[in-house]
Simulated assay, not measured.
Amino acid sequence: MTPGSADRDGSPGFWRSNSLTLVFGAAFFVVLAGQAVAGRAEFNEQLAVAGLQQVGFGAYLASSDFAVDVTENWQSEFLQFFLYVYGTVYLLQRGSPESKPLDRAGTESERYQRMGPHARSDSPRWAGTRDWRQTLYSRSLGLVMGAFFLGSWFAQSVSGVSAYNGERLRQLQAPIDWGAYLVSADFWNRSLQNWQSELLAVAAMAVLSVYLRQRGSPESKPVGAAHTSTGVEG
Rank of each mutant, 00 (worst) to 15 (best):
H118R: 06
Y90R: 01
G10V: 02
N194V: 00
G160A: 04
F14W: 14
E108P: 04
T129D: 07
G231S: 09
E45V: 10
W153A: 15
A127S: 11
V49E: 11
R190E: 13
I176D: 07
Y60K: 03
N165M: 09
V49P: 08
L61G: 04
G95Y: 00
S64G: 13
P117F: 04
S217K: 09
S64H: 11
A50E: 07
L172E: 15
Q93P: 06
R170F: 11
A105V: 03
H227S: 11
R16C: 00
P218K: 02
G179M: 05
T107A: 10
Y86N: 13
R170K: 12
L199S: 01
T230P: 08
W15I: 13
A226P: 00
A105Y: 07
Q193S: 15
R8D: 15
G151E: 05
A226W: 06
A204W: 10
T230G: 00
A6K: 14
S159H: 09
S19P: 00
V68Q: 09
Q113T: 05
L52K: 14
V202Y: 04
M205V: 06
K221V: 07
Y181T: 00
S152C: 13
G224T: 08
W188V: 10
A50V: 04
G13Q: 11
T88R: 10
V23M: 13
Y181C: 01
D186R: 08
L22F: 12
Q196M: 15
A67R: 02
S152M: 12
N165S: 00
A67C: 02
F82V: 10
